[in-house]
């Protein structure tokens, strides 16, 4: 993409790869990931910060990428679902979501997992009620909530995931 007068230059690291990009100042981090970089694992559910499907990590903290202007991401480290695990090399949280069936349609799942991973680093209490609260910014319309809580709790407790449970 050629730089033009109304474009901005940003440099940012996404999943440990550094990108130098000329962007439209209106572009959100979500649209940058999806439409410019084809990192389509991050989903757009509402584009208003109300559903959580677009959750990614910026400098280690969970953010709603639909409410984050890419122009403000110069110099940051972004991690998306593509930087967590692959089908052949799952992160334990991904394994736990599969074992506990923490999704149905799968569309909110990238956001759920990015939130769940951030929750591991946040100061939440140990019980399920704390996880329900911590995960309430991520809507699952299919209604997998009890299974999501079970998956997150299992990873938090460092238990081995029983894939046939």
């Amino acid at each position: 993409m050629a730089a033009s007068a109304n474009q901005l230059r940003i440099n940012l690291a996404i999943n440990d790869t550094v990108h130098g990009l000329d962007i439209d100042p209106r572009t959100t981090l979500l649209d940058l990931l999806r439409e410019t970089l084809d990192l389509t694992g991050t989903k757009k559910g509402c584009n208003h910060g109300q559903c959580g499907a677009c959750t990614v990590h910026v400098n280690g903290q969970r953010v709603l990428s639909c409410l984050t202007l890419a122009a403000l991401c110069d110099g940051v480290q972004v991690r998306t679902i593509e930087g967590i695990g692959t089908p052949d090399d799952l992160h334990p949280m991904q394994d736990a979501f599969i074992a506990h069936d923490g999704f149905q349609c799968g569309y909110c799942t990238s956001g759920q997992i990015m939130s769940a991973l951030a929750v591991l680093e946040e100061p939440w209490g140990p019980d399920a009620a704390a996880i329900k609260e911590a995960m309430s910014g991520n809507i699952c319309r299919c209604g997998a909530y009890p299974n999501i809580v079970a998956a997150v709790q299992e990873v938090r407790k460092g238990l081995e995931v029983d894939r046939n449970a």
Partner: peptide
């Protein structure tokens, strides 16, 4: 049997491609 979803690895890694993907 409680067989885990065969598409679970795609859905949990962001590699399942929906229409807009």
């Amino acid at each position: 049997k409680p067989v885990s979803r065969v598409d679970g690895r795609l859905k949990t890694t962001g590699t399942a491609q929906y229409s807009a993907d």
